[in-house]
Amino acid sequence: MEKVRFGIIGIGNIGTVHTRYLLAGVVKEACLTAVCDNDPAKHRAIRALVGEPVALFSDAEEMLTSGLIDAVIVATPHYDHPRLSIMAMRHGIHTLCEKPAGVYTAQVQEMNACARECDLVFGIMYNQRPNPLYQKVKELIESGELGEIRRSNWIITNWYRSQSYYNSGGWRATWKGEGGGVLLNQDPHQLDLWQWLVGMPVRLRAFCQFGKHRQIEVEDDVTAYAEYANGATGVFITTVAETPGTNRLEIAGDRGKVVVEEGKLRYWRLRESETEFNARWQNGFGEPECWEVSIPVAPECSDHHVITANFCAAVLRGEPLIAPGLEGINGLTLSNAMHLSTWTDDWVTLPLDEKQYLRLLQQRITTSVEKEATSRTLDASGTW
């Protein structure tokens, strides 16, 4: 195999993004040979987008068994991610799933079990992982430069979404159609990076506001506090209704601090660890000598095609995945825990009580209101 033949299931906002870069040949080891969308009303526009050489299907299984593809990108609404990914893997198709891996962790457990059984490549479209800014932060943490992590704080409020965005699809921002709001749609990138960098907490307390700023059922404003096994703490703040928004990640250890904001990385290094300084210092006021260190970082890059190119390298040459599918459950665990903490008005201890979460989610699905909306495919080319 010289090139990986891709199919795409779901040609909506993000599916169109994947379609365009594959058709443009941006990923040298990939080609688009088939697409699938179960809405016949969209097929004329899809055909105009992909041209005649690309096969167009209405049924996913028909595409998966057509012999036209080696791999598939699952880009449908969230609830279908596990079902379609499992179906693809059962048919011997390498699978790259859009974020989030699913709506609730019990779904993704089944997904992961299937992935373990199949000798196939399974990845998640976490296109922020290859961003050199976060790669460098991970390097600083793993090398011990920051020392023991004591605190992390992520303010991610530049996910602005207007009411017209939510009105562009009947499934959007409903418990029945999407299963969550900003945590499930926009923040999977940051939730994945947060746990990828500092690990998973042992317990979490969250305050989600549902339909506070938009006419939606699900959360549009969240503040969460997390505690870790080593005593470290973390705060995660997000909303879709703040402009100008902020994207600031701050991680402090006992040997320094790193901040990522506005596409830049700043690093402060202590000449000696705070722990050692505190043990020896006898003069009352004072603090460890601190240097701001300039660290070389490659230009920021978070395009989806980087993950797809890496996925192709895994299929063709066995190279390690940047975002393995098996890790897709971690960020979802955090968003589920934030929902559950708010619903129960209490702390949530990890591992998550999956049965309790699903029971409470099902209650909300039962009362979810059918939303009348005219489906529109929006230009998502400038999003993450």
Rank of each mutant, 00 (worst) to 15 (best):
S294R: 09
E148H: 12
A298M: 07
I322V: 12
E52M: 03
S341Q: 02
E372F: 13
W171C: 05
I216H: 00
V72T: 12
F207R: 12
P299M: 03
S66C: 12
Q128A: 05
F236A: 02
A229Q: 09
G234V: 03
D346M: 01
N336K: 07
R203G: 08
S294A: 12
A298S: 14
G181L: 04
G253Y: 01
R364P: 02
L184E: 00
T233W: 10
G263M: 07
G328A: 10
R266D: 15
G231N: 09
E117C: 12
S375I: 11
T239I: 00
D346L: 02
N153R: 10
R376W: 00
S58D: 14
Y126S: 01
G318C: 13
H213C: 11
I307G: 05
N112P: 06
I8G: 08
N158W: 06
S143Q: 01
I307L: 11
A55Y: 05
T367R: 11
T344M: 01
P288M: 06
D37E: 13
A241Q: 00
I11W: 01
A373F: 11
P296F: 05
E29P: 05
H94V: 07
V108S: 06
N13W: 08
Q356V: 11
E139Y: 03
M63W: 03
S143N: 10
W268H: 15
G234P: 07
K99E: 02
H78E: 11
D345W: 00
I237S: 13
Q195P: 01
V26Y: 08
D187A: 14
T239K: 00
T223G: 12
E219W: 02
L340F: 08
G382H: 14
L68W: 06
K42A: 15
R161D: 04
T174V: 04
W194N: 00
G245I: 10
A229N: 08
E250D: 09
G147M: 04
Y79P: 00
N153S: 14
P351S: 01
W291Y: 15
G180D: 02
F285M: 13
I295M: 00
D59A: 06
S368T: 10
K42F: 13
K3T: 15
D70L: 12
W171Q: 11
A88V: 09
P53I: 09
L358H: 12
P324S: 15
S152G: 07
P130T: 07
L204C: 10
A241D: 05
